[in-house]
Simulated assay, not measured.
Amino acid sequence: MSYPSAEDVAASLPHFDDAVKYINGLPKESPVPGVELTSQEERLGYYALFKVGTVGKVTSKRPGMFDKAGQFKWDAWKALENLSSDEAKAMYVDIVAMSMLIDAKERPEVFAWLNDFLSKDDCPAFVKAVLDSSKDTWPRIWKLCEEFAEALNAAKESGKDQELVGLRWQAVYGDVYVPKPGMLSSSLGGFKLSGAEWQSWSDLTGTKKDAAMQQYIEKA
């Protein structure tokens, strides 16, 4: 079974608008002191999937050399433009949900914030749908999240996390969608990926997300 399957799309698509509202509603300053809830790379991925899901293929020319931020956005959108609208929307939902589920296992301070968030009357329906749901109601990509989170933690404790970094990026985001980090991309793009980490991710291009996640779990 490859990702995203028809079942993945059917389960995740209804949550797209709520997932977008959740991400757009996060404050610019992290509500968890000292912890970044969404990285620059993650925000770029959300942007690209949103554009594919709501617009489709790239509709403009690549920005010029003096608009580096625009180039990053354009490149990310272009890299994912062959997804269908429904696939992109489902993947957006799944990535947001995966981040929540992984944080709940891997980052105690974020888990505490999510729990507090969940108890509030104005908690977004999407957050409740993710954190209060039975994992049996979700496609396989969601069921793998718990094992993947445990594998991430095990890899960090054993020191294997760096050698598995390519599989981690492929498992969460699929094929590489950002340019290789260089002097300009590191300073203007805000990426934390090193050139070696980017290459290990790029080498996995074409590997299905669920397959990369399973490989990560087995190796960790």
Results as ranks from 00 to 15, higher is better:
5 S>L: 11
186 S>T: 03
101 L>I: 07
138 W>D: 06
161 D>I: 15
20 V>I: 13
9 V>F: 00
91 M>V: 15
186 S>F: 01
29 E>T: 15
81 E>T: 14
144 L>A: 06
171 A>G: 05
168 R>H: 01
129 A>M: 14
87 E>V: 12
135 K>L: 11
29 E>V: 15
128 K>R: 15
123 C>R: 13
174 G>N: 05
46 Y>P: 07
82 N>L: 09
148 F>P: 07
111 F>V: 05
52 V>N: 02
3 Y>H: 09
198 W>M: 05
121 D>C: 07
209 K>H: 01
27 P>A: 07
131 L>D: 04
186 S>I: 04
56 G>I: 15
153 N>C: 11
152 L>W: 02
164 L>N: 03
162 Q>G: 08
163 E>T: 04
187 S>V: 11
154 A>F: 10
74 W>Y: 15
181 P>C: 13
6 A>D: 03
42 E>P: 01
17 D>Y: 10
10 A>L: 11
105 K>L: 10
85 S>D: 10
26 L>H: 09
43 R>C: 02
154 A>C: 13
76 A>W: 02
63 P>D: 01
16 F>N: 01
155 A>I: 10
148 F>K: 14
14 P>N: 02
35 V>P: 06
101 L>Q: 02
216 Y>P: 07
213 M>C: 06
165 V>W: 04
75 D>G: 10
81 E>S: 06
91 M>T: 15
197 E>K: 05
151 A>S: 06
108 P>S: 10
78 K>G: 03
169 W>M: 13
215 Q>Y: 03
63 P>C: 07
214 Q>P: 00
144 L>S: 05
115 N>H: 04
99 S>W: 13
97 A>G: 11
98 M>I: 07
